[in-house]
Design a protein around this nucleic acid. Structure first.
Length: 552
DNA sequence: CGAATTTGACCTGCGC
DNA sequence: GCGCAGGTCAAATTCG
C-alpha cells in the first residue's frame, strides 16, 4: 500500500518529463528517443532517463508500444488528452510506417535496457564507494584519535577552566557537556552498528588515557573533583534523571523507563566515554542548579519540502502528542521511536510557518538499537550534524559559538556570521536545510540555530566521529555542489594534513558527476517529497520529484 | 481486539 | 508567585 502510493509519487515527475516530450513532439507517433531522454546530454540527465525508463517498465514489466501508452495513462494527470496524443501517434497509418515504429520501439527498448544496466552499475558503484568510504572514515577516525591524544596536554584544559568569568565557565561547561552527550550517543550507535564501528569504539576506549579536550569528563571533574571514576549512570538528560530520583508520580514512571533506557543505552557506550562519569546523584550533588540547567540536548533539525505529514526516515515512530506552538499556526507533532521498547529518540514534526510546504523534523537523542539501512542514513546524518555542532569549534568570548571557522569566509556566499549558536538557545540545534532554496535564503534561520546549508561541512568537520558517512550524507554532500558551494570541503579542511587528506578524498570521491547524480538520487529517494512510506524502498535508484530536482 | 492516534490535563522550566 | 510555553502522559477514540 505504501509502495503504491510511493510509486505514484515517484512516477509523477516521470510523467511530467514524458508529457513534455509528447507535447514537444506534438503529433509524432512515437516519442522520439531524444525527447524521451530529453536531458540525456548531461550525465545526470542520462541517469535520470535510465531511471525513468525503469519506472515505466515497472508498471507491467514491458515497455514499448502500447504498454508505453498504458504507463502514461496511469501516470497522467491529464490522461485523456495525453492518451489521445499517444494513440494518435502509435496507431500505424500503413505497413511501412508500422515497421518504422517497431524499429524505433526496438531501439527504445535497447536504450532502456542499456540505461537499466547503467543504473545497476551505478547502484553497485554507489554501494562500493559507500563501503569504501566507511572503511576509510574508520581508519581516519582512529588516526585522528591518536593524533588528538598526542597533541592535547591536560594543562590546556585546566587553564581554560580556570580562566574567564564564572559565566564564561558556565557557558563552556554547558557546551562541553552537550558535546559529550552527542559523543555518547554516537558511541551507542556505533556499537550497535557493526563490527567495524565496534572495533573503533574499542580503540577509542583503549585510548582513554589521554582524551579529547572536549570530553565531558573535564567538565565534570572541574565541577566535581571527587566524582567517582567508575562507570555509572550518565545523565543524558539531567531533568529526567532528576525525576528518577525525586519523582514518585506518573511522570516518574516514564522517567524510570527513560532512565532504564539510558542505562541500557549507556551500556553501549565505550568504557572510555563512560569512565569518570559520576552517577546522576553525584552530578546533582556537585552541580550548582544553574549549571545543571546548562546541560541540554543537541538537536538536529531537518528542513525538507514535503506534502506528507512526515518524511520517511526508515524508523518506526509512534505519535505521543501534538501541540500548537507559539508563532506557528501548524501544530507540532511529537513522535518517539518504537523500533526498540526503550529507544530514547524523539522527534518533532512541524510545518514551517513561513512556508507550509516545508516540513521541519527535529531529532533528539540517539537510537539504542540497530537500525535498518534506510534509517541509518538519517540517523547517521543527524548524528553527524549534531556532532559538528557540538565539536565544531570552541566558544567565543561572548558566549556565542563561533562557527564561522567551519566554513572559510572567503568561500561563503553569505554573511560571515551566518552560522552562530547562541548559548541562550533552548537547545543547541543544527539545521539541515534540504529545501534547496537559494543560498541567500538557506542561511536564514531562527536565532540560536546553526544553519548548515551543506553537509560537506558536517563531513569535513566530523572527522573525529566514527560515524559512517551515510548515503544520506553523501547525497547531502553532493547537493552542496548544486548549491554553488563547490570546493568548500577543500577550503574548509582543518589545518591538519590528515584533514586535508580527508577533504581531498571527499573531493575525489564526489568528483565524478555520475556518482554525484546517483547520490542525489539516493538522498532524494530517502527524504524526497514522497508521501510517508516506511516500506524501505529507499534504495530504489529512482529520482523522485524531490527537493533536489529543480536544481538538477 | 490490539495497536495507533487524538486530545485535554498535567508537569516543568523560564521570564517577569 | 504567577503566567506562559514546551513537552509529556494517559484515557478516550479510531483504525486495521
Amino acid at each position: 500500500m505504501d509502495s503504491s502510493s510511493s510509486d505514484d509519487q515517484d512516477l509523477r515527475p516521470v510523467h511530467h518529463h514524458e508529457h513534455d516530450s509528447l507535447t514537444i513532439s506534438n503529433g509524432k507517433r512515437v516519442v522520439s528517443e531524444t525527447d524521451f531522454f530529453a536531458d540525456a546530454n548531461s550525465k545526470k540527465g542520462k541517469i535520470m532517463a535510465g531511471i525513468k525508463t525503469e519506472i515505466t517498465r515497472g508498471e507491467d514489466g514491458v515497455v514499448p508500444g502500447h504498454e508505453l501508452d498504458t504507463g502514461l495513462n496511469l501516470l497522467s494527470g491529464h490522461a485523456e488528452s495525453e492518451r489521445s496524443v499517444v494513440h494518435h501517434g502509435i496507431i500505424p497509418q500503413n505497413k511501412g510506417d508500422y515497421k518504422r515504429k517497431m524499429d524505433e520501439l526496438s531501439a527504445l527498448r535497447a536504450e532502456i535496457n542499456k540505461t537499466n544496466e547503467e543504473n545497476q552499475q551505478l547502484r553497485l558503484m554507489l554501494n562500493q564507494v559507500t563501503n569504501n568510504f566507511h572503511a576509510l572514515q574508520m581508519q581516519l577516525l582512529a588516526l585522528l584519535q591518536r593524533q588528538k591524544s598526542q597533541r592535547q596536554p591536560l594543562h590546556v584544559k585546566t587553564e581554560e577552566i580556570n580562566n574567564g568569568t564564572l559565566e564564561d565557565r558556565k557557558k563552556r561547561e554547558g557546551k562541553i557537556v552537550a558535546r559529550q552527550f552527542m559523543d555518547l550517543g554516537k558511541a551507542g550507535i556505533h556499537e550497535a552498528d557493526d563490527d567495524r564501528s565496534q572495533s573503533i569504539s574499542e580503540e577509542r576506549s583503549q585510548e582513554a588515557g589521554t582524551i579529547c579536550p572536549s570530553n565531558i569528563v573535564e567538565s565534570m571533574d572541574y565541577k566535581s573533583p571527587k566524582s567517582s571514576t567508575t562507570t555509572g549512570v550518565v545523565p543524558f538528560d539531567s531533568r529526567r534523571t532528576t525525576s528518577i530520583d525525586h519523582s514518585g508520580n506518573n511522570r516518574g514512571k516514564l522517567a524510570r523507563e527513560y532512565g532504564s533506557s539510558q542505562q541500557e543505552f549507556h551500556g553501549l557506550i565505550s568504557n572510555h566515554e563512560v569512565a569518570n562519569f559520576s552517577t546522576s546523584k553525584d552530578v546533582n550533588d556537585h552541580q550548582k542548579p544553574d549549571t545543571s540547567s546548562m546541560i541540554r540536548k543537541a538537536r538536529v533539525s531537518v528542513r525538507a519540502r514535503s506534502e506528507a505529514p512526515m518524511i520517511s526516515d526508515g524508523c518506526q515512530w509512534r505519535k505521543y502528542g501534538q501541540k500548537m506552538a507559539k508563532g506557528n499556526p501548524c501544530p507540532r507533532a511529537y513522535y518517539r521511536c518504537t523500533m526498540a521498547s526503550a529507544c530514547p529518540v524523539r522527534k518533532q514534526v512541524q510545518r514551517s510557518a513561513e512556508d507550509k510546504t516545508i516540513l521541519v523534523t527535529t531529532y533528539e537523542g540517539q537510537h539504542n538499537h540497530p537500525l535498518p539501512p534506510a534509517a541509518m542514513a538519517m540517523a547517521s546524518t543527524t548524528s553527524a550534524a549534531a556532532s559538528m555542532l557540538l565539536s565544531g569549534s570552541m566558544p567565543s568570548s561572548d558566549g556565542l559559538m563561533d562557527t564561522t571557522n567551519l566554513i572559510p569566509k572567503s568561500s561563503l556566499p553569505c554573511p560571515p556570521n551566518f552560522a552562530t549558536l547562541s548559548a541562550s538557545a533552548p537547545f543547541p540545534t543544527v539545521t539541515l536545510d534540504l529545501t534547496h532554496t537559494p543560498i541567500s535564503n538557506t542561511f536564514q534561520a531562527p536565532q540560536g540555530q546553526l544553519v548548515v546549508p551543506s553537509p560537506s561541512n558536517i563531513f569535513s568537520q566530523n572527522l573525529a566521529s566514527p560515524q559512517h558517512m551515510s548515503i544520506f550524507e553523501q547525497g547531502l554532500y553532493s547537493q552542496s555542489k548544486f548549491s554553488g558551494l563547490q570546493g568548500m570541503e577543500l577550503q574548509n579542511s582543518a589545518p591538519t594534513p590528515l584533514a586535508d587528506a580527508v577533504a581531498a578524498t571527499t573531493a575525489a570521491i564526489t568528483a565524478d558527476p555520475n556518482f554525484t547524480a546517483a547520490l542525489v538520487a539516493a538522498i532524494t529517494s530517502i527524504i524526497g517529497n514522497a508521501p510517508a512510506d516506511n516500506t524501505g524502498n529507499n534504495d530504489h535508484p529512482t529520482i523522485r520529484n524531490s527537493i533536489g530536482n529543480k536544481n538538477l
